[in-house]
């Protein structure tokens, strides 16, 4: 036990110094001495994240969560690894879990975790958007190909009638041009609405809210921002009346509205 603690402390020192290879090795040795310490797994996971060893970081987080299902650090590291591997749904799920645990423990990393949640939402949207654009382009190509085949068939059916062949050919040509036009018009449309409504923005960080909480005066803020402010000054930012973090209440409807807004406008996560 004492040996394991010693190795862990030494690992932490190497980690602080930026020597992640050595830190990872020391945490591994500590785990040989004590395989049931959840903190050793999250520490090694953090070192492995720095070394871009995503899969083994995920394995460490899983090992930690078996021992301590409510480890905020494990969920946070897991989310980072999934994000790097572009597993966006898993990344967001664990980011939100880490956020909830952070709120419950009144942990000081709430600001960092909140920013990470936003990042997950943004990258997930980017990915969906890219896929949507690609799929739309594929659909367009596919439909055009079908139409071209149809046109060839219709032209063939005209037999030797030269005039009829030309007429059918032109008719299909016009239809295909119109289809291209429709797809073309649909494209910029999606990129036009680029404005974030004021109700979605936290007046302290100027970011779209992830976990809005409401004050006694009815104004909502991002939890991480207002808690940071109240830590220094227990006062309502607008009215200057006394206000304590314990008096904040989640604003669930606004949270849902912000979620839905971000789902459709993921770019707004870092407008």
């Amino acid at each position: 036990m004492a040996k394991s603690t010693h190795l862990k402390d030494e690992g932490n020192r190497r980690f602080q110094a930026g020597d992640y290879v050595m830190a990872e090795a020391l945490y591994s040795q500590a785990l040989i001495a004590d395989a049931n310490n959840p903190a050793l797994y999250t520490n090694r996971a953090m070192a492995r994240l720095r070394l871009n060893q995503w899969d083994s970081a995920i394995a460490d987080c899983a090992a930690c969560l078996r021992l301590a299902p409510d480890s905020m650090k494990a969920h946070y590291s897991l989310s980072q690894a999934h994000l790097a591997l572009r597993a966006h749904d898993d990344a967001l799920r664990h980011a939100l879990r880490a956020h909830a645990l952070c709120v419950k423990a009144a942990d000081k990393s709430l600001g960092t975790i909140t920013a990470h949640v936003l990042k997950c939402k943004k990258e997930r949207w980017d990915d969906l958007e890219k896929r949507r654009v690609r799929e739309t382009a594929e659909l367009e190509a596919e439909v055009l190909e079908l139409m071209a085949r149809e046109r060839a068939q219709a032209v063939r059916e005209q037999g030797d009638d030269e005039g009829g062949r030309r007429e059918v050919d032109e008719e299909w040509g016009a239809k295909m041009a119109r289809l291209r036009e429709v797809f073309e018009r649909a494209r910029p449309e999606a990129e036009r609405r680029r404005e974030v409504p004021d109700w979605a923005i936290d007046d302290i960080s100027f970011c779209v809210m992830v976990d809005p909480v409401i004050t006694k005066t009815g104004k909502s803020y991002e939890r991480a921002s207002i808690v940071e402010h109240l830590r220094r000054q227990p006062q309502d930012p607008l009215t200057r009346e006394p206000l304590y973090a314990s008096e904040l209440r989640p604003n669930l409807d606004l949270k849902q509205a912000c979620d839905e807004f971000l789902q459709q406008n993921g770019w707004a996560a870092d407008w």
């Binding site: 600001g111 302290i204 100027f206 970011c207």
Partner: peptide
């Protein structure tokens, strides 16, 4: 709060 917190908010103000 990290330095990037201020930078982010100032970027938006700007």
């Amino acid at each position: 709060m990290s330095a990037s917190f201020a930078a982010k908010r100032l970027g938006k103000e700007l």
